[in-house]
Design a protein around this nucleic acid. Sequence first.
RNA 1: CGGGCUGUAGCGCAGCUUGGCUAGCGCGCGUGCUUUGGGUGCACGAGGUCGCGGGUUCGAGUCCCGCCAGCCCGACCA
Length: 575
Amino acid sequence: MRWSTMHIPTLREDPAEAGAPSHRLLLRAGYIRQLYAGHYSLLPLAVRVRLKVIGVIREEMNRIGAQEILMPVMHPAEVWQRSGRWYAIGDEMFRLKDRKGADLVLGMTHEETVTTLASELNSYRELPKSLYQFQTKLRDEARPKAGLMRTREFTMKDSYSFDLDAAGLDKSFDLHYEAYSRSFARMGIPAIPAEASNGAMGGSGSIEFVCPAESGEDDVVHCPNCGYAGNAEKATSTLPPADAAADAAAAADAPERFDTPGVRTIEDLARDYDAPGDRQLKTLVYVLGGELTLVLVRGDHALEEQKLIDATGKADARPATAEEIFAALGAHPGSLGAVGVTDLPVIADEALRGRSGMVTGANTDDVHVRGVDVARDIAVGTWADLRAAQAGESCVRCGSPLEVVKGIEVGHIFKLGTKYTDAFELSVSGPDGKPARPVMGCYGIGVERAMAACIEVHHDDKGIAWPASIAPFEAVVVVAQQNNAEVAEKGEQVYRGLADAGVDVIIDDREVRAGVKFSDAELVGIPFRVTIGKRGLAAGTAEVTDRATGETAEVPFDQVPKHVREAVAAAISLS
RNA sequence: CGGGCUGUAGCGCAGCUUGGCUAGCGCGCGUGCUUUGGGUGCACGAGGUCGCGGGUUCGAGUCCCGCCAGCCCGACCA
């Protein structure tokens, strides 16, 4: 490939609209251009990287025995109606009508479609089976952002496993876990596997792969000591046991009301009434599945909404409005409590179990109660882990202090169960001759997002520094003096030598100053730069420079192909 | 969907507050000379429905109203 003929529109200045490093660099280095919000054209360099990412994932999927297919982007509404998601999903699904007026869906994922294919599985002997594809997904994201990080149109590698039973699903799940771990490692993406909420996908378990990055949207609770990790929506931590003596000291025979004029917050109460946050009950009011519900957490804890949803199975959760609250409890937020409340469901966080001597609102403005014994005074209907784990709390596995890191969700694997095989009434003949319902798993990797995540991790002030495994080219031959016939010819020779040695190489044969070529090579992020110039010509050497480290080696011309090929191989095996 | 901000040449911006002759600057682009291993220097040149629509005015890039688009924060995110 020749730089002089390739479309690589690099920009000298940073584009104004780009915030995240990957967004800025993808634009500036000539990889992508925006058509409109959330929709990007991939230019030649990006297409090359995308194909390499796909290549890595494809190898790893094939390695675990998955088979590649390709399903349509556009689906009849019927299959989505059959699974129920036609009704369950809101504005995020693109819907349209064809000329006959038939309802159609632009696929945001392919569980329905693959399950219709799987109807041709007839016997347990055909299981397990994993099918995968690289296909465009369309999602009407409320807020596309950060370039390729969050778009409305993107490529996803999605795979779907079918097994005879739960044990089989576990195995397929583990195989995908391995394939994902290997894929991300090969692409130089330091993805942390984190326990995650299944969310609306349902099913019995899920792990998301999170690449730590400032620009990420996920919070992951992570133990640097033992490696435990969980999405904030799911992660737990160990708390020190409550101080029984202190509880006893604050306890009372019955809850005791006391006036707290002007007190609205946990902090007010802690400061003015000797009630530290961990001695308070925080009473939140939610509308869960249309029903007003009291949610209790410790005063110094934060509710994790997803845990509330997971614990109750009610996906339509929202905080109640001040009006709804006043109508039900007769008080405003700041003076709410669950003591004596029997007409509303109460769900409480596990950290409150067994506590006594607690302080909470009295459901009268400017009045609180103390000496509350949770077991005695509150009609808790459901106990659950509801609080958000926080940095500094103890790891549930090893007890070390946890940290909270921001990251990008680059992959997610789910145990689905039989939600879709039930809906489509899929069955195979089991070993006993009776019908058996296959259990499914689904597994996704965002291809362009993985590219963005990789850049977030591999860049510096000069530009991108791709891992060799997915770089658009492995090496660039820079002809330092294009107008010097001897230098130009030597550049061509070295270029051919590298190509013949199997190196994915581009020659920068443009009639521009050497400085421009150096800057562009660094901006674009090609791992190895082979510089041919007058200096080296006399000595019979080229300079081979490592993009990531900046280290340069003088290499005799005839050894350049071998040297670079080995350097590339080493770089690829490293990751 | 709520809050904030921004739309002027391919990119980055000034001009708007206080309306006024032909709308400017830097980068990039073209031509020529120059320079030649870290985005050279000089000269000449091309490139604009000032986001769109309406209004006020003798006159609107500038003031007013409406709309659209984009960015950031939040909500949302199967």
